[in-house]
């Protein structure tokens, strides 16, 4: 699983995005250095999902540039490196758990798909559901499968939208351990500060499509008063912008 090479950086340079007349992102810039794990924080409608969709190449910016390492997000090279988990991720509903994993593994060009699938089934406690159709699974097991599909090719760049949603506590711990052991640059969009603190070391805050603040979790804590919960600090910073 460990790679000897450094994973690529993630970069947004002056990115704006319009949906018709509505501007979802306004000249947004930030950079994650290789191997950094960073939380993307922001209120509802801040532009987090749009940011992730641009970074994975599913949306094109109206202006500005997004880069994964030296590549455009829509290039074949960056697609090979990236793993993406959207919010409320839904795998192929008519496939079984194993079929989903083997199909995506084959599309990703993994040589030993079967072995890889077996390892993920065991580590994410999905073995008993391998023949179950996705439509029959509980929301928590769907999320486990979605995570497995996002990381099946050991991506060196991971873009995750609320990855711990619906997971029970033991599975959350398994996933956190798994993600921490991946040699990858990770951007995690979340509303929950505890997820941010468990999965990442750094925070990027955006609101209404614009950059608000960026720094380490320690720096963020230092912005608050003695003993002030980190959630309250974030809430104050985001409210000040609104």
């Amino acid at each position: 699983m460990e790679r000897s090479t450094l994973p690529p950086s993630i970069e947004m340079n002056g990115v704006s995005k319009y949906y018709g007349d509505f501007q979802a992102l306004k000249n947004l810039s930030f950079k994650l250095e290789p191997g950094e794990r960073c939380a993307l924080l922001g209120p509802n409608g801040a532009g987090k999902t749009t940011t992730l969709k641009i970074l994975v190449g599913l949306l094109s910016p109206s202006s500005g540039e997004a880069k994964i390492g030296d590549f455009s997000p829509s290039s074949e090279d960056s697609r090979r490196m990236m793993g993406y988990l959207p919010d409320d991720a839904s795998p192929y509903r008519t496939f079984s758990v194993r079929e989903n994993m083997e199909y995506i593994g084959a599309l990703r060009g993994i040589d030993d798909v079967s072995d890889k699938v077996d390892r993920l089934l065991d580590s994410l406690q999905l073995r008993e559901y391998e023949k179950s159709k996705v439509g029959r699974l509980s929301r928590g097991n769907v999320q486990k499968l979605a995570i497995a599909l996002a990381i099946i090719h050991d991506p060196s760049v991971l873009l995750l939208d609320e990855p711990l949603n619906y997971l029970d506590i033991p599975t959350q711990e398994t996933v956190i351990e798994y993600l921490k052991n991946l040699n990858s640059t990770q951007l995690v969009s979340t509303h929950i500060m505890e997820v941010a603190t468990r999965l990442t070391d750094k925070v990027i805050m955006i609101s209404r499509g614009t950059f608000v603040w960026s720094g380490t979790l320690e720096e963020l804590k230092r912005l608050g008063k003695e003993g002030e919960p980190i959630e309250r600090i974030v809430a104050r910073m985001l409210t000040d912008v609104l």
Partner: peptide, 11 residues
Amino acid sequence: SGDVKRVRKFS
């Protein structure tokens, strides 16, 4: 329907 009768292999 719960389980698939025959799991397709893509390996």
